[in-house]
Design a protein around this nucleic acid. Structure first.
Length: 155
DNA sequence: GCCAACGTTGGC
DNA sequence: GCCAACGTTGGC
């Protein structure tokens, strides 16, 4: 099983919104970055990811989610009316993918950027790299456990 | 709202 | 294939 960190602006789509989707989950669509797309293509059903709130008053990890369907074409790239429309993507040759995800857990407390930066075990975390803007990044099992523990997850 | 960092685009 | 211009991200 692989571990991931996935970013979302809470004003657009928060962890609470994902929770409301229940067990059927929702597509994690709108990703328009090749590297992030390739990471999604590497995901398996059952993979766990940390849910990171970005571009908000308190950026940080707020909980976790689970991959429930592997990568398939992102329909929002094909709809001209949609914000994520990409004329370069077609039904015959789709450029962008999404995976389906479902809520897994709420942390007891948010794990802020500052908190993560202060933990030596997390020094290699991609999200902490200067200028890192990837919305989907891989994570080691140890890093996943470490952040979960900081968030108050028992084990 | 500022701005540094980064990815993409397109002229040459 | 180079690289300047531009758009976006995201912490602050």
């Amino acid at each position: 099983m692989n571990h991931w960190l996935m970013k979302s602006e809470p004003g657009v789509f928060a962890l609470a919104d994902l929770k409301r989707c229940g067990v059927v989950g929702t597509p994690w669509d709108g990703v328009r970055n090749y590297q992030a797309r390739n990471f999604m293509r590497a995901m398996n059903v059952g993979d766990l990811a940390l849910f990171y709130h970005s571009n908000c008053p308190e950026p940080g990890v707020v909980g976790s989610l689970r991959v429930i369907r592997t990568a398939y074409p992102d329909a929002t790239a094909l709809e001209p009316a949609h914000h994520g429309y990409d004329p370069g993507s077609t039904v015959a040759s789709p450029r962008w993918d999404c995976v389906d995800v479902a809520w897994q857990s709420d942390f007891e407390q948010l794990v802020s950027l500052d908190r993560m930066r202060a933990v030596p075990e997390l020094c290699d975390l991609l999200i902490l790299r200067r200028g890192s803007r990837l919305s989907v990044t891989p994570l080691s099992a140890a890093e996943f456990r470490c952040i979960s523990r900081l968030g108050g997850v028992k084990r």
